[in-house]
Design a protein around this nucleic acid. Sequence first.
DNA 1: TCGTGTGAAGTGTTTCACAGCA
DNA 2: TGCTGTGAAACACTTCACACGA
Lengths: 215, 215
Amino acid sequence: MIIPGDPQPRLSRAAAGRLSLYLRRLELLERNGTVQVSSLALGDALCIPDTQVRKDLAAMGNRLGHPGVGYDVPELITAIRSRMGIDREWRAALVGVGNLARALLRYDGFSSRGFRVVCLFDSDPAKVGKTVEGLSIHSLAQTKPVIRSMNAELGIIAVPGSSAQMVADVLIDAGVKGILNFAPGLIRVPLGVNVVNVDLTIQLEQLAFMVHVGD
Amino acid sequence: MIIPGDPQPRLSRAAAGRLSLYLRRLELLERNGTVQVSSLALGDALCIPDTQVRKDLAAMGNRLGHPGVGYDVPELITAIRSRMGIDREWRAALVGVGNLARALLRYDGFSSRGFRVVCLFDSDPAKVGKTVEGLSIHSLAQTKPVIRSMNAELGIIAVPGSSAQMVADVLIDAGVKGILNFAPGLIRVPLGVNVVNVDLTIQLEQLAFMVHVGD
DNA sequence: TCGTGTGAAGTGTTTCACAGCA
DNA sequence: TGCTGTGAAACACTTCACACGA
């Protein structure tokens, strides 16, 4: 129940992006046995000013900082996870079983942080039926029943750009609520579905631009 | 020679990010034989308002738009490429020859847009000497001579997080001026070296957050 | 009339300055 | 004294309104 005096202020997009960074750092601190951290210490490692860290953490609502002391590491980790919605498992369907998919499947970062790829799809009949990393590959025609039975809420698109929109449409029709898109070019989605684009060419172009103009 | 009345206003980071998008769209238009485009038509396809498009294009300096007509497609493509520094070939060294590297090497988007991976490195002795996509894999000890002889200006880090900083140091020592980093966690670089981080876990967490809070 | 370029207004984000608590 | 939380100021970015050119 939300009371009029909103206890959860809007978290800006920019701030949300930094919460992931804080979380990583905090988890490292926790593994090292650190139980308290100041905004200055937390920010320093990430090149983020202490005032920014405090603004971000204050924006999460509950009063998390202890004046004169700092923040309690485990408490902060729990709070961030909860606020970001990553205090639970997220199940994802992966479409396009090429090298990128294989890299993603073996990438520790996903599984260790609650993201589980639970089904694979590929349009190539030669791949359908084969098994990769313990998951069998389904045909695209199977998306709806498989995604529903596996309860996948997220979709990962790792196909060439030309078929990305078609794949997105199929995933959305199957009930996926968020898409991580590695194909170049934007994909159109209805309201209520979220997309994060990871466009490698654009990243490289940005890098070239930065080097070109010089820092 | 730069004249005091600066003909090249600063291009904001945000604007630079959109230039890549415009360029993609313009190249598609050019392939379709379109020679003129308005800010409205260009923006519509990318969900960017026409005023934003005009601001971005005006920020490039030269007067590129023709009032009442629009922009000349080939002219605009040339101008954007030149301004972003991607009107030439960029040579890159790739470190860490796993599945991600294989995916990158086969990815059309790079080679077709002037980015060429010219040498491979891996710390695994079993991989050194082997050939992938026509490139032989060198040991990390070889970075300096190989990168210099191949004139690579960019480095791509596709190794696990734990060795990312070490690899970055080696690349920078070899003269690389920009780094595309796929390893999780920030890497420290001296002034004059640019980094673009592609952190897949953070992207997925952002997606989960967006779905969690609901659009 | 159509469509660009641009000052001005509006919005969002970051930094500053400092009050207040342990 | 050390550190948080926060209003105010500064800055960055986007949108608006409109003058002007073809």
